[in-house]
Design a protein around this nucleic acid. Structure first.
Length: 484
RNA sequence: GACCCCUUCGUCUAGCGGUUAGGACACAUCCCUUUCACGGAUGCGACACGGGUUCGAUUCCCGUAGGGGUCGCCA
């Protein structure tokens, strides 16, 4: 087979040339991408209005966060308006606290909304629980149109048109649903409260939504929404049903699964908002850029609904952490300290000198991918009674000459009046030379003495940051407590 | 059960009829190195299957299988 390649190629070339000439001679433009299927949608000429409409169920789910993120990206990229609307029609399971979780998650991700809770707006209120009068009015419209009927128990049903309905979707293309055989849809319960499908459509009309980016799980119900829009004499928004986020094993990701909740899985684990934002944005969409690590602003600029995938994506914690590591390393010492503070504090570390603390966390930034890992790497910077790890003690005691090597270092380090990384380094070199060993042999001993650990930043960096006094004291402590 | 969406390395993906099927994460090896890392280099590794259409299909069409979703007086 490989031997015949050359011959095959020469046979093919004339055809390639032919194909080239053919495509060049026809004035056919490039094949349209999915999103350009309906270039003349009525919304093309309007400033986009998009929304995230969660029901308050506590901690923000990553799927919800990503849905919000896509809407946000579209609004920011087009100069449109991003609206937050709380779909709290099911009073029983909606609590104020649950709603705070959503708001906290969105704020943490940096998804600011232009209209909605806390910021207001001209189409409020933005809580469905406060919009009953509006829904009553729209129900009256349907009544007037003869499209509803009331059951014996008081529930109100919407009469489906029972015609074929096509969803023009930015992601999935045109999806046509045959006339339905399902029973008519209940839109109001006997107790007078309204059902999701109805209020969702009413609010999208009232709030003038032009585009709806939502999970693909809604695609199968979208024809019902369109039927409702038509019955109410309104134009449906342009839909974009985005792929779902699945667990690593391909199963549906739900509340209990790892990585599913923003506060629990990300904020508390020490992720940076920018990193999670970046990772989530790339799950189901690939920006046309030559790199993957991008800021919100860059992502908003590059966002193109046409490039949203139609296949579900599995969640990969490794990659998310890799993004986090990238952003972590790009932080300034001050920013890194600020981000680490909650984790340092919950580890019981007391920060005295902020400049020193910033330098300390900065010195270990390449060693971690999550903020919560930082305390274990820097605790000895903030306390004198740091423990000696078992293998460290063992190593120090392994060779009898270790004590004299440390004593040599104690002497040279005690001499200097200057205390910089460079001066520390040369003091160590001098000690090694005097003791007749390589510098590399002395370093691990000093690291062990100064930190109680066998890994960490440069020894000179540690010594410089903790200061001369502490350095000498720590070596003495090691000599007496470990090698004494 | 009916209907809808989907299927390229383990994972996220590039690919728009002719490519040695490219990249990132992960993994492995090597280099760098006072440790751990970072970084650099290299390697591993994929078009679900079967039919068409075509000179030629990863790419277009049909089927099968598999995955996901929807069919609530949940949202």
């Amino acid at each position: 087979m490989p031997g015949s390649m050359g011959a095959v190629k020469t046979v093919h070339e004339p055809f390639q040339l032919l194909a080239f000439l053919k495509s060049a001679s026809t004035l056919r433009p490039c094949p349209l991408r999915r999103a350009q299927i309906r270039p003349f949608s009525p919304h093309c000429f309007m400033t986009p209005r998009v929304r995230f409409a969660p029901s308050p169920t506590g901690d923000l789910h990553v799927g919800g966060g990503r849905t919000a993120l896509f809407n946000w990206l579209y609004a920011r990229q087009t100069g449109g308006t991003f609206i937050l609307r709380i779909e709290d029609t099911d009073g029983a399971r909606n609590t104020e606290e649950a709603q705070r979780g959503i708001v906290k998650g969105l704020r943490w991700l940096g998804l600011d909304w232009d209209e909605g809770p806390e910021v207001g707006g001209p189409h409020g209120p933005y809580f469905q629980s406060q919009r009953k009068a509006i829904y009553d009015a729209y129900l009256a419209k349907l009544e007037a149109a003869g499209r509803v009927y009331t059951e014996e128990n008081g529930a109100v049903r919407f009469k489906f048109s029972r015609t074929a309905i096509t969803v023009h979707d930015l992601v999935c293309g045109d999806v046509t649903f045959a006339p339905t055989e399902e029973p008519d849809m209940t839109i109001r319960r006997p107790d007078g409260s309204y059902i999701f499908h109805f209020v969702n459509v009413v609010d999208d009309i009232e709030m003038r939504m032009t585009h709806v980016f939502r999970g693909e799980d809604h695609l199968s119900n979208t024809w019902k929404h369109i039927d409702l829009f038509h019955a109410l004499g309104a134009t449906p928004p342009t839909y974009a049903h985005i792929p779902l986020i699945l667990n690593p094993d391909g199963s549906k990701m739900s509340k209990r699964d790892a990585g599913s909740a923003i506060e629990h899985s990300y904020i508390h684990e020490g992720f940076l908002p920018d990193a999670v934002f970046n990772y989530l944005a790339m799950l189901g969409w690939t920006p046309r850029a030559d790199q993957e690590v991008l800021t919100r602003e860059q992502l908003a600029k590059l966002f193109n609904p046409a490039d949203i995938h139609s296949a579900n994506a599995r969640f990969d914690l490794h990659k998310c952490q890799w993004f986090n590591a990238q952003f972590l390393r790009a932080l300034s010492p001050e920013a890194l300290l600020k981000a680490s503070l909650p984790f340092l504090e919950s580890a019981g570390l007391v920060i005295g000198d902020e400049a020193m603390a910033a330098a300390a966390v900065y010195s270990v930034k390449e060693k971690v991918s999550l903020l919560k890992e930082i305390p274990a790497w820097v605790h000895y910077f903030f306390r004198e009674d740091y423990p000696f790890e078992a293998d460290v003690t063992e190593k120090l005691r392994a060779k009898p000459e270790n004590a004299s090597l440390l004593k040599a270092a104690l002497t040279t380090l005690g001499h200097g009046t200057e205390w910089s990384e460079a001066s520390v380094h040369s003091a160590i070199e001098a000690a090694a030379k005097e003791a007749g060993v390589k510098t590399g042999a002395l370093m691990p001993l000093l690291r062990a003495a100064l930190s109680g650990q066998s890994r960490g930043p440069n020894v000179a960096t540690i010594a410089h940051l903790i200061g001369q006094e502490s350095t000498l004291r720590r070596i003495e402590r090691t000599l007496s407590e470990v090698l004494g």
